[in-house]
Amino acid sequence: MPHHLKGRTSIQGSSLTRWFFVGPAMLVVICLLIYPLCTTVLYSFTDKTMIRADFNFTGFENYTRILTDPDFWSSFANSLVWTIFGVLGQLAIGFTGALCLNRIKSPVMRNVFRITAIIPWAFPSIATAMVWKWLLNGIYGFVPVSLRNLGITEGLAQFFSTPELVMPTLIFINIWFGFPLIMVNVYAALQTIPQDQYEAAQIDGASAWQSFIHVTVPHIRTVVGLLVVMRTVWIFNNFDLIYMITGGGPAGASSTMPIYIYDTGWTGRMVGRASTASVLLLLFLVILCVLYFRVITRWEKEDDK
């Protein structure tokens, strides 16, 4: 290889060639993400419905309606609970799982554990919903019947119809589904830490905890940070699980923002108002991500030093 070509990764191409390569994907982004975003913002200021094609501009009426709707705020609160506990739970289980996996000496066992633990990740949302509904079914479900037979509960626990139990149950299912992604990615990041750094820390007399704080954490925090942002956005926007398991019930006890948007736009046919709620949701996520990214970018800069 000629020396001057080493280390270069980009090349000059005519603008036509460039667009041949990135054009189709750009078209996807413009037509399927940017255009719908613009229409949503537009609709959010109108009285558009699912039934009629024409609509009128109503200014900020939708916004004042939504922001004074108690259902909106209770959905928002549920979304926060759903997201915060979902992310923390997935992170706690996934992270500890990865640390343990990293300690398993036998490569065979390590693979067995890793492959078995990623199974929930492969579950389609419909199968996740169905199997958990069946496991937790209030009459014949394996879990409630076992709990009663073991004497832990007196009657059959009603996980989905008890308002106090429904959110914790959904969050548990969400953690079950999501921890493997964190585990696999954190484990991959742990593998990139040079072993000699641990040896050096040990020679310096560092305890296991100290080498965790001073060697492990700095190496993997960027990856963990990105995972947290990714999961936050994904869980916040997740519609399938709650829709299929409880539909937001009982009596709105598990309704999150996407469920609220669905109820307004599809069941209630009020496209304008659903769009307003979507815009508010998106704004919230944008602010959240800007804050997250500020921290991650600082870490990245520190890593580069």
């Binding site: 390569f21 990135v22 982004v29 993400l33 975003l37 609709y43 948007i261 736009g265 979507s278 991500c289």
Partner: peptide, 27 residues
């Protein structure tokens, strides 16, 4: 090959695309 700077922020671009909730796009 042509936009290497974009390549370094792909994860952020991906996360940005995740921000668009399907329930919003579907309308």
């Amino acid at each position: 090959r042509f936009f290497p700077k974009l390549g370094n922020v792909m994860t952020k671009i991906l996360i940005t695309s995740y921000m668009f909730p399907s329930i919003m796009l579907v309308i």
